[in-house]
Computed example of a mutant assay.
Amino acid sequence: MSSLTLRFITILILGFSSVFSYGAELMKPVGPVLLTVTGHLQFTNNPDGKAEFDLTMLNAIGLKKSVTTTPWTDGVNTFEGVLIKDVLKTVGSTGGTLLKITALNDYSANMPIEDLDKYNVLLAMKKNGKMLRIRDKGPLFVIYPFDEFSELQNEVIHNRSVWQVKSISIQ
């Protein structure tokens, strides 16, 4: 067996159970880090007290879909990714009332944590079955279910819909 095959089998066997480590650490990313979580968290995988996630680790959290229109895309689209509240559960969020979500270009927006339960906010990795690339607002894009709640159609919520997300700070 090739080392790539062995790595895949190991990730498959361990990934779904050990992303959520039984100690104070998460498994370490094998692939490129897509998301870094800091702030009020219990479970880390970095000596600096951060939680870093690669694609495999994000997938292991559990993928959800949101079918919606957005102000930045044409028509109705199917976005797929992880619920941000599930990311917070994975890192053992220990409090905080606000998330500071930061993009690759250092744009940031503050999101009240209460939005996560109220609206099931998605951290999308795919649009219409295709991985989001940087030029497509990826690799991670905050998606609110705009079509389900008319109150989401406003500038405040639009500003919270960060694309090219690189980090979330639990404050």
Rank of each mutant, 00 (worst) to 15 (best):
D86P: 01
G92V: 13
S66V: 13
T38W: 02
K50M: 12
P71G: 05
V37D: 03
L41A: 12
D86L: 06
F43G: 00
F79H: 03
F79V: 08
A51N: 10
K50V: 00
L41M: 13
L41P: 07
G75S: 08
K50I: 02
L55R: 10
D86A: 08
V91Q: 03
V33N: 02
V87N: 01
I84R: 02
D48N: 12
L34M: 14
K85C: 09
F53R: 11
N46P: 09
L34C: 07
D54L: 07
F43S: 12
G92S: 11
L58F: 05
H40P: 00
T44A: 15
N77K: 06
V91M: 06
D48E: 15
F79P: 08
T70F: 00
F43A: 08
T36I: 00
A60E: 00
G75D: 06
L63H: 01
V76F: 04
L55T: 08
T78C: 07
N46H: 15
A51W: 14
T69M: 10
T78F: 04
T70I: 02
V76I: 15
L83W: 03
S93G: 10
T78Y: 02
I61R: 02
I84G: 04
T73S: 10
T94G: 09
T56W: 12
V87D: 03
H40D: 11
V87H: 01
T78N: 06
V37C: 07
L34H: 02
D74Q: 14
T90K: 05
N59M: 14
G81Q: 11
T94F: 06
F53P: 09
T73C: 01
D74E: 15
K64Q: 14
D48F: 10
